[in-house]
């Protein structure tokens, strides 16, 4: 019996070279979730894979597989978007790598997630169009957490339920996944101080339509606070820091 073939759109999350000319590629697909496959001759064949196997490339993928859990055979990969503006800008490239790394961490094999696929598509497009890399990353983190079921409670104190307009200051508690107001305990208790202004901007970034997100500009202080709380929360959820983040910090010191 012939092995069935499937066609889908996909983003390249990562790959490793295998043998002399093959590559084992991890894709994030629109129809099949995360998928691992072997691209035979990918390092040599420009014809079947036409440079499409590069991190964060958006491609049209043709693959076959016998079982849902097995390694797929990549038959063809045609590029849809190579994001030339991202690839010629160091800060954008680093941001795109981080989005890809996070997507890899927050998705599991063979579990379809149209929402996360659309999110990645939208946010890479935002970067490509020139949106600020740091703001793009922060709003992506927030929306990814939301779509993955880890949405932090930022609109009210998780102890007294007071809204942001009713509290003077807040602390983010990664273990509880939300904010605690200063009225519910003056001392920090391991929480990260965050201003209500930053929280309000993040809440707007969570809800606003993607094509209007470029209108949201985070101040220097808001960028610093949101970076700290979201990174801390993601670290807490994953139990480790994504590898790309360390490189992002290293390179961020010069750009």
């Amino acid at each position: 019996m012939k092995t069935p073939s499937f066609k889908t759109q996909a983003f390249v999350l990562r790959f490793i070279n295998y043998g002399e000319s093959d590559r084992i590629v991890t894709f994030f697909t629109s129809e099949f979730g995360k998928l691992r496959g072997i691209a035979k001759g990918a390092r040599r064949s420009r014809k079947r894979f036409s440079n499409a196997i590069e991190p964060f490339s958006h491609s049209s993928l043709l693959f076959s597989r016998k079982r849902e859990s097995g390694l797929a055979l990549i038959e063809n990969c045609d590029i849809i978007n190579h994001y030339p503006a991202i690839r010629t800008d160091l800060r954008k490239t680093m941001a795109a790598s981080y989005l890809i790394d996070l997507t890899d961490h927050f998705t599991i094999e063979s579990k379809k997630s149209s929402g996360i696929f659309q999110l990645l598509d939208d946010f890479l497009a935002l970067l490509e169009r020139g949106n600020g890399p740091e703001e793009t990353v922060r709003f992506f983190e927030l929306r990814l957490l939301m779509l993955s079921g880890y949405e932090p409670t930022l609109e009210k104190c998780f102890i007294c339920n007071r809204s942001l307009d009713e509290i003077p200051a807040a602390f983010f508690d990664a273990k509880r996944g939300g904010i605690r107001c200063s009225l519910c305990g003056r001392d920090n208790q391991g929480g990260i101080p965050v201003s209500t202004g930053t929280l309000k901007t993040l809440l707007m970034g969570k809800q606003i339509e993607t094509n209007r997100i470029h209108r949201l500009v985070l101040s220097g202080n808001a960028l610093r606070e949101s970076r700290e709380i979201l990174r801390h929360f993601i670290h807490h959820i994953l139990g480790k820091e994504p590898k790309s983040l360390q490189v992002l910090d290293e390179i961020g010191r010069i750009v």
């Binding site: 999350l13 680093m94 890809i100 590898k243 790309s244 490189v247 992002l248 290293e250 390179i251």
Partner: peptide, 11 residues
């Protein structure tokens, strides 16, 4: 080469 996804940075 720098490879963020593999954690390889300039250092």
């Amino acid at each position: 080469a720098i490879s963020p996804l593999d954690g390889i940075g300039p250092e």
